[in-house]
């Protein structure tokens, strides 16, 4: 499979995430779109790892080309921590203003 197919697939998923952040007003959906963007990047990292494996450079090391997949593992770690804190913030916001509409959070504007 050509690497360009994977790049375009990841770009499409990433752009759908950006459009979701732009068009939705529900804070939870916006948060889910951020997760979608993270997953698009993960997919691209794994595809690049396998591309590097195909090219055959640095075949001397036993772990060659698996670094990108370790990075994906760390991205998942950070995403899990981010979700727990972010959902706590959204629950707190719901408790105070009784809505998840992000347009209600414009008190710092004036």
């Amino acid at each position: 499979m050509d690497i360009k197919a994977y790049i375009i697939l990841s770009l499409a998923l990433f752009t759908i995430g950006i459009v979701g952040v732009l068009v939705r007003r529900n804070a939870i959906i916006i948060f889910m779109c951020v997760e979608l963007m993270l997953n698009a990047v993960n997919l691209l990292l794994v595809a690049f790892s396998k591309m590097h494996a195909m090219s055959g450079v640095a075949k001397a090391s036993p772990y060659f080309a698996s670094d990108a997949q370790v990075f994906v593992f760390f991205i998942m770690v950070v995403a899990a921590a981010e979700v727990s804190v972010g959902l706590a913030i959204i629950v707190m916001m719901y408790r105070n203003v009784h809505t998840v509409d992000v347009n209600f959070l414009n008190r710092l504007k004036n």
């Binding site: 690497i3 360009k4 790892s49 591309m51 080309a65 698996s66």
Partner: peptide, 22 residues
């Protein structure tokens, strides 16, 4: 760029290699 991606083969994604690297 005309790079190809390795499909269905290769041991980069297996638990042994990833765990040793990690």
């Amino acid at each position: 760029v005309e790079q190809l991606v390795e499909m269905k083969v290769g041991d980069q994604g297996l638990i042994k290699v990833l765990g040793m690297n990690l």
